[in-house]
Design a protein around this nucleic acid. Structure first.
Lengths: 106, 106
DNA sequence: CCGAGAGTTCAACTATTATCGAACCGTGCC
DNA sequence: GGCACGGTTCGATAATAGTTGAACTCTCGG
């Protein structure tokens, strides 16, 4: 199998609550998570809706979310798909993601 | 009125989600919140169950939690009572606190 | 095979947070 | 009043997180 440009993802059972909370505690990351809750996105589509950010900055935020187990970031051809790990989060921390998403976006 | 050694607390309506998440994202603060979920405590009782911490450090954590609106810290005679702002949090972010508290403590 | 496109990683810098001693402030008791 | 006690605030330092350009990797199309 030629692919294998995979990034490390923690498995569902080993997610740490404080790491998840921290990852979600940044407004720009939370805004992205909200968008991912509607549909997966390519990395290039993960840029904030207003004002562009350097790709290294975006990549860093994606890393924080990925290492906390909030998102999955998988290669797909020449692109990458970013998606919310909704089931894993619901399984490990029932109700948490829903509560966060339900809160009024400030 | 003699009292008036009151610290500022944000009102329920103005709580900011990311600030709350950040306040809860620290293990020692979260551990304290878990204990406060069972009963209010005096500040002196807020020290971690194992190993003591300088009072200035504890006070700093209390400040972070208070400014995020997670706890209330009110003077009571010579002591201070620290309590969880459960209703305010439930009102502003329904289900959030429950989900956090329900998650297995690591 | 070479170049362009999509993203991550690296390294350096800045900014925010944590930690802790020391100074300070109220309160209650003598 | 004076003093011990419970806590917060201040100030300095250490640690962690955010930002960004440049270098690097991989994939696809010619």
């Amino acid at each position: 199998m030629p692919g294998a440009r995979d990034l490390p993802h923690p498995d569902a059972a080993s997610l740490v609550l404080t790491d998840v909370l921290f990852a979600l505690s940044d407004p720009s990351r939370l805004a992205l998570v909200r968008r991912l809750a509607q549909a997966p996105l390519e990395v290039s589509a993960c840029h904030p809706t207003e004002g562009k950010v350097p790709k290294s900055t975006l990549s860093h935020h994606l890393k924080t979310l990925r290492e906390a187990g909030v998102i999955r970031n998988v290669p797909e051809g020449r692109h990458r798909y970013v998606s919310l790990r909704r089931e894993d989060l619901d399984d490990r921390f029932p109700g948490l993601l829903d509560a966060v998403l339900r809160a009024t976006a400030d």
